[in-house]
Computed example of a mutant assay.
Amino acid sequence: MENVVLIIHLILALSLIGAVLMQRSEGGGLGLGGGGGGPASSRAAATALGKFTWLLAIGFICTSVSLTIIGAQNASSTSVVDGIDLLPPEGEGATTPDLGDSLLPPSGDDEPLIPSGN
């Protein structure tokens, strides 16, 4: 079921992109300009392509919500981190690496960390 809704969602997304790109530009960004007597009278008449775009947008939102609901129902209550085995394997080949004294701080016999003298 999830795959069917996902395919419909992708078709709606591509159709919505195409419908928006086919619409006539009104000039000016964000509906500014275009002449006329102010914002109340500058509203364009609803075209068939505009109504189709709204229909595609509503379908896109519905499939988005449906995919979210389906995904939430299919989600398991365990985390991915729960499946990771953090313990080293047991057996003959399981040994800890010998890092030597390279990680230990210098003892009193060694050279000082800060050179003396200028």
Rank of each mutant, 00 (worst) to 15 (best):
N118A: 02
A44E: 15
L67D: 10
G35E: 13
T53P: 07
L16V: 00
L30K: 13
L104C: 07
A94V: 05
T53V: 08
V4C: 01
G59F: 05
N74E: 12
L56Y: 00
G31L: 02
P105L: 06
I7M: 11
G91S: 06
D85W: 11
G59L: 07
L21H: 00
P112V: 08
F60D: 03
P106D: 11
S25A: 04
G33H: 06
L21C: 01
F52M: 06
I8L: 08
A19W: 01
D109P: 03
R24P: 00
L49F: 01
H9K: 10
E111I: 02
G100D: 10
G33K: 08
R24D: 02
N74H: 03
G83L: 14
A94R: 08
I84H: 11
A44N: 15
S25T: 04
W54C: 12
G27D: 04
G28W: 10
H9E: 04
E2W: 14
C62D: 05
I69V: 14
L87Y: 12
N3W: 02
G34W: 11
S107C: 07
S76P: 07
A57E: 06
I70K: 06
L87N: 15
R43C: 14
L113G: 04
L104Q: 12
M1Y: 04
R43G: 15
T63I: 09
V20S: 07
T95W: 09
T68M: 13
A48S: 11
G83Q: 11
A75Y: 09
L67E: 07
W54L: 15
S15V: 00
N118H: 00
N118I: 03
M22C: 02
T96L: 15
N74T: 04
G36Y: 10
A13R: 11
T53M: 04
S116D: 05
L103Y: 05
E26G: 13
D98N: 15
L87H: 14
M22S: 05
P89E: 03
G117V: 03
S25Q: 04
L12K: 06
Q23F: 00
G100C: 09
L6M: 08
G38S: 02
L113E: 09
T47I: 02
G83F: 13
I8Q: 03
P89K: 04
A45C: 00
G50P: 02
V20W: 03
P112E: 08
S41G: 12
T95Y: 11
T63W: 09
P39F: 14
D101I: 06
G100I: 10
L49G: 08
H9W: 04
K51T: 03
P106K: 11
L113N: 05
A44I: 10
K51G: 02
A46H: 05
E111H: 01
S77D: 14
I70F: 08
F52V: 07
L10N: 15
D82I: 02
N74M: 07
G38V: 01
S66A: 15
W54P: 00
T53I: 05
L104H: 10
G34C: 10
S41R: 06
S15P: 00
P97N: 12
G93Q: 07
S66Q: 06
M1C: 02
V65Q: 01
S79V: 04
L12E: 09
Q23S: 03
